[in-house]
């Protein structure tokens, strides 16, 4: 599958990523290469093969509804890009 420049722009806009002009061509090539794997798969005869969403043959992995201590807030916030005592801070995203 061919990736047009517009698709690169569209996907980066959806992800809120601003790609420098110089990186767009490289990104375009990389995405194309990734999608070439799909072309390989397209070539296989899958008639009569059940669709699969997981490669690991597991099902019904669940946990009991029992409360466990949450993470310490200070530790949790320590990795945030902007330091704050209570919350994760992001650029203005609500009015």
């Amino acid at each position: 599958m061919k990736i047009a420049q517009e698709i690169v722009d569209y996907v980066s806009a959806l992800s809120r990523l601003s790609l420098p002009e110089g990186e767009k061509a490289a990104m375009q090539r990389e995405l194309e290469k990734i999608l070439q794997y799909m072309d390989v798969l397209e070539g296989l005869d899958t008639a009569g093969v059940e669709p699969m969403s997981h490669v690991i043959p597991l099902e019904n992995i669940m946990r009991e509804d029992r409360v466990m201590p949450s993470q310490d807030r200070g530790e949790l916030l320590a990795g945030a890009p902007v330091p704050d005592q209570e919350a994760f801070l992001t650029p203005k995203s609500v009015e």
Binding site: M62, R63, E64, D65, V67, S70, R73, L76
Partner: peptide
């Protein structure tokens, strides 16, 4: 396994899974 209790001080009912830390894995509550 964080509590669902309403209210609470901001970000005190949180863990690596519900704050989307890289590598954290979800396990469904039965």
């Amino acid at each position: 396994s964080c509590t669902t209790q309403f209210g609470g001080e901001p970000n005190t009912h949180c863990c690596p899974v519900c704050t989307g830390m890289p590598g954290a894995l979800p396990v469904l509550n039965e």
